[in-house]
Design a protein around this nucleic acid. Sequence first.
DNA 1: ACTGTTACCGTCTTTGACTT
DNA 2: AAGTCAAAGACGGTAACAGT
Length: 228
Amino acid sequence: MPQLGLDLQALKQRIYRYSMQITSDSWESEDLTQDVLLKVHNLRQANPSIELSNAYLYKIALNAWKDKLKKRKLSSEPLDDGHMNVPGIDTQLSTRELLEDLAYRLPARSTVILLLMDVFDFTAKEAAELLSLTEGSVQVALGRARQKLKKLARTGMESSVSKQAGDPAQLDFEALVEAFRLRDPKAICRSYLGLAKRQITVSKLKYINGKLTFYFEDPDGNRFMVTS
DNA sequence: ACTGTTACCGTCTTTGACTT
DNA sequence: AAGTCAAAGACGGTAACAGT
C-alpha cells in the first residue's frame, strides 16, 4: 500500500485525480480537492502519524463529495448552479455580457456589486465586507444596477458602447487580485474589463479558508487559479 | 441626480421538538 | 430512525428619507 509523502503538490494532484473520477467536472474537482486537503490537514494536526493510504484518501474524497451533494439538495438545485463551465449551458453568459457593457454606463461600485453578487454568488454581507459598505447599501445598489441592466436589455443595448475609451494599459491577473486586496471598486472594474477584452474570463471567485481565490480561463481553454 | 442608510416585508433555510 | 411541523434566523428586495 503506497504511502503518501509530504509533497503537497503530489498529494494535491492525487486528490484531484480522485475527485475527477468522482465528479467528472474540473471545477467541482478543484473545489473537492480544496475540501479534502483541508480535511487531511486537520487529520494530520490531530494525529501526525496517521497513515493516509490511497484508499483512505479516496474514501475522504468520496465522503466529502456526498456531503456536498447532500448540502446542495440535488433534487431542487441543478448541479451547475453558479458554475459556467458546462458546455452548451451557460446560463450566466448573458448576464456577463450585459455586465461588461453595463460597466461602461454604471459607477464602478455598482458594477462590482453586480459582478460579485450576480456572477460570483457573493452574499450581500460578503460584498459589503469587501467594499466596506453596509449590507443595506449593497442591496440597494444591486437593485438599482439590476434595474438598469433590465432597462438596457429591453432597449437591446442599442448603442454598443465604444470600449476603447479609458482602457487601462496594464491589465493582468495580479492587477485584479491586487484591486480586490485593496478593495478598490474602480480598479476591480478596470482589471475585470481588461481581462474580458483579452477574452480571459474570471469563471469563478470564492472564499477558501478566508482568502479570495480566483479561477481564470484563457481563450485556449487553459484554466488556472490565483489566490489573493 | 446620485448614493447611502434605515425600516420593514416576504421568502427560504435551519433547527429543535414531537410523532410515527 | 425517519418524517412532520412550527419557530427562529438569514437573506434579499423595496420604499422613504437624508446628504452630497
